[in-house]
Amino acid sequence: MIRLLLSKQALVIFAAGLFIAAVLPPFLPQFAITLLTSILLFAIFTASLDLLMGHTGLISLFQAVFWGTGGYTIGILASRGIVQNFYLAMLISIIVVAAVAAILGLIVVRVTRLYFMIITFAIGQIFWSFAYTATSITGGADGLARISRPDLGLPWSVTGYLNFYYLILVFFAICFYFFYRIVRSPFGSVLVGIKTNEHRMRALGYNTFWYKYICLILSAVLAGVAGSLYVYFDNYIGPAEVGWGWSAEATIMALIGGSGAVAGPIIGAATYTFLRYFVSAYTLHWPLAIGIGFILVVLYFPRGIAGFITDLTRRNGRGSVKD
């Protein structure tokens, strides 16, 4: 088990990282700050998938559905001026995403692992095609644009890239704090039990359906929050953000980073985003690079970077649980 990155040491490292993330940006160029902003949001997105996939073992191909539902909710509310209040809009978005997950979960959580994969793909297609065709609601293939930065009702405006970055940093800290708490909680250990041996969990008396169901809703809300904030970041939302390509990217980031540890999603999102940015600056062959890189990770580093680091520090057969 990946314990090193869950322990109190990790908390200290995380706090240190957060401090650097807060203090460094004013000295960085604009492109770096916007890059970091997107990394923070993708990290939340990846963490949401990790909760479902890495901790509970549910292989989901539709994570973008929740990102996109959150995103389109904000998009629709903001672009039409229906709700101008940022806090209210975010709250509505969270409720909508949770509701969608609650409904989908009833269908989707009952099935076996293999079918879960397939049915999530199918549901993803339906949402994507709805986003693509319902032009009057979602803007169709063009999506919704000209969504401006929110007014927080505070003395600081977030229209500028630096202040917006700090807003996202706050959300990032909150989301990862919740992620950390869930993962270390008894509920989190039940999820791991389900991933490791669901049959035995049921034989021990656990009604595994409920845990998977709640996990799905929590995962969806995290993804939805990230997707909602991304709309304010990008001032745009389109059907691609609901599609399986988008879900696939979350999967790639989750795998590169490694599942089972809190830092994994952050490492994965950062690595992927940095790589894409810099490789794309020099060559058009980013898809080739990521395709090969991804295959290499799948074959040789299945537990991702976080897993690799933990393996280096682990002694034979013993974990290092901090209880």
């Binding site: 708490r181 869930i182 270390r184 909680s185 008894p186 509920f187 989190g188 250990s189 039940v190 021990l204 008396g205 656990y206 649980v321 901090k322 209880d323």
Partner: peptide, 15 residues
């Protein structure tokens, strides 16, 4: 943990 209320706890660390 299977029959304890603790198993629903989302917030406190299991330790």
């Amino acid at each position: 943990m299977a029959d304890k209320r603790a198993r629903f706890a989302l917030y406190r660390p299991v330790g």
